[in-house]
Amino acid sequence: MIRLRAFGDTAVDFTFLIGQALTNGLIIGLLYLLMAIGFTLVFGVMRVVNFAHGEFYMLGAFSAYVCVTKLQLPFLAAVLATFILTLVLGWIIEVVVMKGFRGEELNGMIATIGLAMILQNGALMIFGPDPQSMPAVAEGVVSLGPVMLPMSRLYVVAFSLVVLVLLYGFLMHSKGGRALRAVVQDIEIANAQGIRSQFMYPLGFGIGVALAAVAGALMAPVFSVSPSIGSTPLLKAFIVVILGGLGSIPGAALAALLLGVFESVANPFMSSSFSDMLLFGFVILMLIFRPSGLLGKAGR
């Protein structure tokens, strides 16, 4: 029933296998990281699990696609435009739709399911179901011994790192960022300290979904763009955030990189559906025995 793979029958190049798997894993881990930080930020601020998070990834990919292929913008400008557009969109959606559900875990979550249906099917109406592709940001391959590093993915790594550094700077060293972190950690204390949480809700939601959109925009040239691409990143963000602990940003960072590496390194040894099953099993155990996540305080 389950195929565990060994290498008995065929000769395998191990250096290539492990080296390549590790680099792939770190690159994909960075993508998961962008998704998961946005997700955990939204949860931290609103106490709402955002089922529409994957749809913002999809919107970001389409936004980059339209900016680059239709408006002929350079890629960097496309990513910037995507960030600003989705930040504004997220802000508006928070105020119009999500306002009534702040802090309401279950109803808020169901509302995001409705939001996801609207966004995904809206994209389907506008763009059609066929996958589109946009030109790669860079061509060519850098090789480190037997390990191949496609330039298109190295670009994603560079951009992701820049985004993460900017986010770190914002959260740690700006007034708005500090306030946001205070809200994520404990909204009552934040309120008591005079932080205007009315302003923090749409800001947190906007930045959270804009990060998902930037992840989508960065991955658009690497993968293809279609209305259904949001579901996988959403699932990965779920897993990362559970492993890292809901609302914990450092936890999400650690878990995202671990997940990326696990997926890539596990793959040479077992079939991908088996590694998925293993992962879900592990996540369930994690939720049961350590719901606060890898780095979280024990107990809730």
Binding site: T10, A11, V12, D13, F14, F16, L17, Q20, A21, N24, G25, I28, M219, F223, S224, S228, I229, S231, T232, E263, S264, N267, P268, S272, S273, D276
Partner: peptide, 18 residues
């Protein structure tokens, strides 16, 4: 899974088999 877009891990493993 049908929605999968990152094929590199799978390809890496296949290529390692020559």
């Amino acid at each position: 899974e049908r929605e999968r877009v990152d094929m590199m891990p799978l390809l890496t493993r296949m290529m390692a088999k020559g």
